[in-house]
Design a protein around this nucleic acid. Structure first.
Lengths: 209, 209, 209, 209
DNA sequence: AATGAATGAGAATTCATTCAT
DNA sequence: TATGAATGAATTCTCATTCAT
């Protein structure tokens, strides 16, 4: 699937709006206005609003699995090193693609119908499976302790980042970071999340309770 | 504020729908049908769809602060005991009021306007402030280590529970719990979350990194 | 027809609202609120919103004809004196019952249906007939010149007062009378209208063109 | 501002309905039906019912001032001639655009809010100012007597025409003109109003009282 | 390929009135 | 007699989509 400039523009603007106002809360007219394209273009290019969402999912979700899989098969790293890289990758990706992840959160909450839900489900299951393999590898190697709940560790990882993303406005206000440029604030968040999640995972995966 | 039976019924059904399909994704007609009341009743009782949401927030958010405040002032418990109770209370409340918390998550994501956003903000800030006091108390008493990031700990606590709630459908499917009754599954989740979060917090708060 | 206090209150408040916002622009709920009575009272007392309007018309329009008729049969006054009194009576009544007259204007414009329109028509025709008699009397006595168009004279009389009533807000602003109390301003208008209309009628009725 | 055929059609039909049944008394559905266009077309073209009214005002009120201003600066006419032309222009315009003027009357009565009211106010004030200049010019030239109340003369001029317009149905019935074609009846009214208002103004402006 | 015009369906809300008490 | 609760009908407006060009 190849997209022309206008199509990419529409998808990016739509992603932002879907993230901020939700799928139903965003009108096709809104998207057309923000993207500066003709209203009919969107149906013309993507078929429907629903299919636009689906296309965004395919567009964003495409190459995620590959990265994880490659890393998993690397024999030179320790499992803890791999976990650390995993954390960085998640932090990096989720904070860089906040819009997409907000849409995913909304999508996970809804009893969504249609193909989009299947895509989300696929993404969640696949990721979980890969992380499970990674942790079991660490257990086999004796690096990690035995009693580890993988879905819960996923929840800690993704949930913590998600919550920081969704509450970042409050966080900014409370801590007086309103005037900090977006890019700098994002870097600040990444660093903080990366550092704390790593030490947290190290504690949970390796210390005996 | 006192509500009659019908009003409470409408609020509960609306809460469920808002949680599942989002605010804009839920029509007043939907609510009226599910609640089995006349369409005009909802405007009649609550003024508007927006005000219905606000009323739900006030209704649910009323007595949260009180519980935390009372516990905080208890002198007989250690700070770690208090943190454990805090975890249980959050797990308990969020899992029992999943609908309400889903609405809150959606609300936090949106750059919402109006009074509902203020209510959410107030709830977030207040909770954070109380937890901050609790952790500082533990640090003063020497129970907790020094370098603790409170907003991040909140994110771990709330984010983990949130993520478990939003992905519970996947979790159920993956683990073959489809046939388990809702109530039992919820108890299972509570237990698991409570156990792991407590050990996680103990590790993070007390062990030197 | 006897009305109790509450009924009169409702009619007065309704008259004001109908005058300001029109019949369809005024909701029964508005009237109930302004009058401080229960919503259902209005249907209960008057049957319907339509019948409330009709009742107001009967209530206000009752004793208008009588006054004119009595004066007309007075043999001691000259016709010009009678015209002057007629002018004063119209100015007085229309300015004192501005609400009622605004409703009448609205009613005349609309191709209204139902009994209210009949009442308006009756009022207009009756008044015109009486004024016609008065002017013909003056012509017979040689006081007034021959070629006089009665409907047009009615239009001058009523139209001028009406227009002053409907544009009084602008008039006040333009002339810097904003701070003048309502009562005083009304007296000012009455005096001015009375003076000019009298001299105008004298000119038109007596001077040969 | 340029309007296509359909837009003009909608405005003309809406103007008629607003005049007959008032703004609130006219539903968008009514307009759509009478104009033979789709219901959504009206919001599509004009944004809202309110903005449709505003657009009608701008559409009708556009070139009124220009006509008066040009005439005012003519040096070849006497002031009385100018007044006569002024009367003809008002009679002509108000009788040709009865719908628009009925809407204006309704608008003047209401304590309307929003931009429409501003437009009405502007029209009233501008016209009054121009007439004031005309009369003062006549006074300076010695053609008119000194003590003339301009707002009141405006009220006589506009009020008389207005009243004839609003009561024309009664007038027709009373005088047995029911079967006369609309166009002919309007011509009759114009002639009558023109003739009488001119002699009336001449009397008031020039004769010493 | 691209778009201005158009539309049927559905949205939230307000309305005057009725009814059980 | 009086009223709080309730409702069916109608309101304005927005929506995603289609169609003729």
């Amino acid at each position: 699937m190849e997209f022309n400039e206008k199509q990419v523009l529409i998808m990016e603007k739509a992603e932002k709006l879907f993230a901020e106002k939700g799928f139903t809360g965003t009108s096709v007219r809104d998207i057309a206005e923000v993207a500066g394209v003709n209203l009919a273009m969107i149906s013309y290019y993507f078929g429907s609003k629903e299919k636009l969402l689906e296309t965004i999912f395919r567009y964003r979700g495409e190459n995620i699995r590959l990265q994880l899989e490659t890393m998993l098969h690397d024999k030179t790293m320790s499992s803890l090193e791999k976990v650390n890289i995993l954390i960085d990758k998640y932090v990096e990706r989720m904070l860089n693609q906040q819009g997409f992840h907000k849409i995913m959160i909304r999508g996970q909450m809804a009893n969504m119908q249609g193909s989009t839900h299947k895509l989300i489900r696929q993404l969640v299951v696949t990721n979980q499976e890969l992380v499970k393999q990674l942790i079991e590898e660490g257990q086999k190697k004796g690096e990690f302790k035995k009693n580890i709940d993988v879905p819960l560790m996923m929840a800690v990882l993704i949930g913590t980042i998600s919550h920081m993303i969704t509450t970042q406005h409050f966080y900014r206000d409370i801590n007086g970071f309103q005037s900090m440029p977006d890019e700098k604030f994002r870097a600040h968040l990444k660093k903080k999340l990366s550092y704390h999640l790593k030490s947290l995972f190290k504690a949970v995966l390796t210390y005996e309770a």
